[in-house]
Design a binder for these strands. Sequence first.
DNA 1: CGATTTTGACCCGCGC
DNA 2: GCGCGGGTCAAAATCG
Length: 503
Amino acid sequence: MSRPANLNFNSIEATFNMETRPMFSFFENVVEEEPQIKINHFHHDNDHDQTLVSKTSPLQEMKSIEEEDLTKDYKQDVLVSSAKAEMGQVREENKKLKHELSTVLKDYKSLQLHFNDFFQQEEVEKSAQKLDHDQEDDGGNELISLSLGTFSSYKHKNDGPKKEDCFRKNKQATDDENDDQELKLGLGCEFDPTPTRVDSNNVKKDEKTQTMELPVHGLKTDRSDDNELLDQIPLKKARVSVKVVCDAQTMNDGCQWRKYGQKIAKGNPCPRAYYRCTLSSSCPVRKHVQRCADDRSVLITTYEGTHNHPLSVSATAMASTTSAAASMLKSTSSTSQVGLTTTGAASTTAFSSHHGMGYNSRAPQYSFYLPKTTISTYQSHPTITLDLTSNPHFNTSNSSNFIMSPRFSSSTCLNFSSPSSSSSLFCSSIESNYKNTIPFSYHGKQTPSHDNFTINSRSASQHHSSDTIAAATKALTSNPSFRSALAASITSLVRNVGGGSKI
DNA sequence: CGATTTTGACCCGCGC
DNA sequence: GCGCGGGTCAAAATCG
């Protein structure tokens, strides 16, 4: 009669033991003790009259029932006490796990900082070597360098006309089609086009003024004696720009913005609108949107700052990517300006007109001209530009793979996030989504030797766009600093998720 | 009626 | 020091 209860009891014990064995030493003793009660009971019966065992009297039956009740109560007490003990132990384990997790996070941060420092030092050395090599041979580089740092030592002033040609070609390549709706960037990170330009007239001056001392890491560059001066000149907040073909007033980046100003920038008849994030009253993030002077369909959005509040899925992705890019800017600030070229005023004009930013001509203008992504400084603002429009380089050299085609349709959605992971980041998601991408070695050399690195998605079909974006992403993510920055963003994301913050 | 946009004025940094 | 230009402020206008 007590047998079924006993079986349940043991099964419960077995279940508990699977999870927290140590705490059941007490429990196990109890379990072993209980059968002894029954054994004594039966022994008692056997000792006095075995016939009564098979045929129990009413008195014996009552006694058996009482003992059974006592046994059930005892079991319940044991269960309750064991459950309490188990909960207590689980709490202890949770505490320990939390402590271990915090320790791991600390170690991770520390390692990441050390890695960044190490990489930056290495990058400085490599860039110095590469600079020497470039000065000897102006041929194409085989590596994409997103290094951002002192530009002082780069002396290639003959590169200007080349850049100008590239821009003009790019401009010609951007032919139109109608898109009337918002271009939606599901990426969660926002980039804005604050292109950097190279002004040969300002180069010498800028050699002394262009230093990438960034807010976060305060990294400095030191490739030459001149850089000592540069290091002491702080730069303003890092910016991330995105160029997209979009007929809407602004592109939908998942955030909520409030317009607080509008200006007609010099050199561009299109007004520049200033927005600030309204998701939080204290959010410091701002952006300005401007259309390209040469191609009104190109929308240039520049983001500045970091959100200090939870974001929606799409906004998080965009913000994370932006943050990663900004971190890359900061982390690479100490590296040399590999591939930095200087151009004449004409090229500067071409560049600025191409980007439609109408920058101050007096501002220092530096340009990394690798295809699709641009790292630059404008008015002391380190800026990384992702050009999601067409890329002249590919088209001019080989049209078979990059055919200029219709722009994004109204339904175009540049969703860099994989469907399964809403908060996926620029790099990981793109790499996963577009594995068969055209690498930057497309032209026979892995990467152009230009300084600007432009992401171009405007190429005709979305397929080509995807390939181009993927290629650009690949190049971007090939930069360890960018990776580490992404890792930091991912860590931040994970932390936010763990903390229950909304994403 | 609150939120958002518009728009002229103002501030500030930079170059001359 | 002055002028230019980018960026921001704030009152008025507009919108939902």
